[in-house]
Computed example of a mutant assay.
Amino acid sequence: MFTIREAAEMLGVATSTLRRWENEGKIKSVRTTGNHRRYTVEELSKIKKVKPLNEKITVGYCRVSSSDQREDLKRQVELVSMYCTAKGYGFEIIEDLGSGLNYNGVCQYSCRI
């Protein structure tokens, strides 16, 4: 989640614009216990697609070793997405669930990008 200052920088607007948009219902924020605004990647994407700083695509790889860690995988994806968005990267996320090793200790997966 991003602070109002971080969100304003990403969108190229003033913090007062974000407050006005919230009052108009164009964007939603999550409030902290101290009543500070925080914005999710999804909400910011509704307003404006963040332009990548260059044409290269960054690949984020998120992995957990078992199906009972699905919630951990979701958190990883969210954190990697937030990081890439904050840096202005054009990105794709690859999610991997389960072990990539067989019983012989040899990797089962081969990835090409």
Rank of each mutant, 00 (worst) to 15 (best):
R19T: 01
W21Q: 02
W21S: 01
W21V: 01
W21Y: 02
W21P: 00
E22I: 02
E22L: 00
E22W: 00
N23G: 09
N23E: 15
N23I: 05
E24M: 11
G25D: 02
K26E: 07
I27P: 03
I27T: 04
K28I: 06
S29F: 00
S29G: 04
S29H: 02
V30T: 14
R31N: 06
T32I: 05
T33R: 14
G34E: 13
N35V: 04
N35E: 04
H36Y: 15
R37E: 01
R37M: 03
R38D: 02
R38Q: 03
R38V: 02
Y39T: 00
T40S: 13
V41W: 07
E42K: 12
E42M: 01
E42Y: 08
E43D: 12
E43M: 04
L44T: 02
S45C: 08
I47S: 03
I47K: 01
K49F: 04
K49W: 06
K49N: 06
V50T: 10
V50Y: 04
P52C: 03
P52F: 03
P52N: 06
L53Q: 12
N54F: 08
N54A: 03
E55S: 15
E55V: 05
E55C: 07
K56R: 14
I57C: 11
I57L: 13
I57N: 11
T58Q: 10
T58C: 08
V59L: 12
G60I: 05
G60T: 05
Y61P: 08
Y61E: 04
Y61Q: 05
C62M: 02
C62F: 07
C62A: 13
V64K: 09
V64Y: 07
S65W: 10
S65E: 15
S65M: 12
S66A: 12
S66M: 04
D68K: 14
Q69W: 09
R70E: 15
E71W: 10
E71V: 07
D72V: 12
D72S: 15
D72R: 15
L73E: 05
L73K: 07
K74H: 14
R75Q: 14
Q76Y: 10
Q76S: 08
Q76I: 09
Q76K: 13
V77Q: 08
V77M: 10
L79M: 11
L79E: 15
V80I: 13
S81K: 08
M82D: 11
Y83E: 15
Y83T: 14
Y83M: 13
Y83A: 10
C84H: 14
T85P: 04
T85S: 10
T85G: 03
T85I: 08
G88M: 00
Y89R: 11
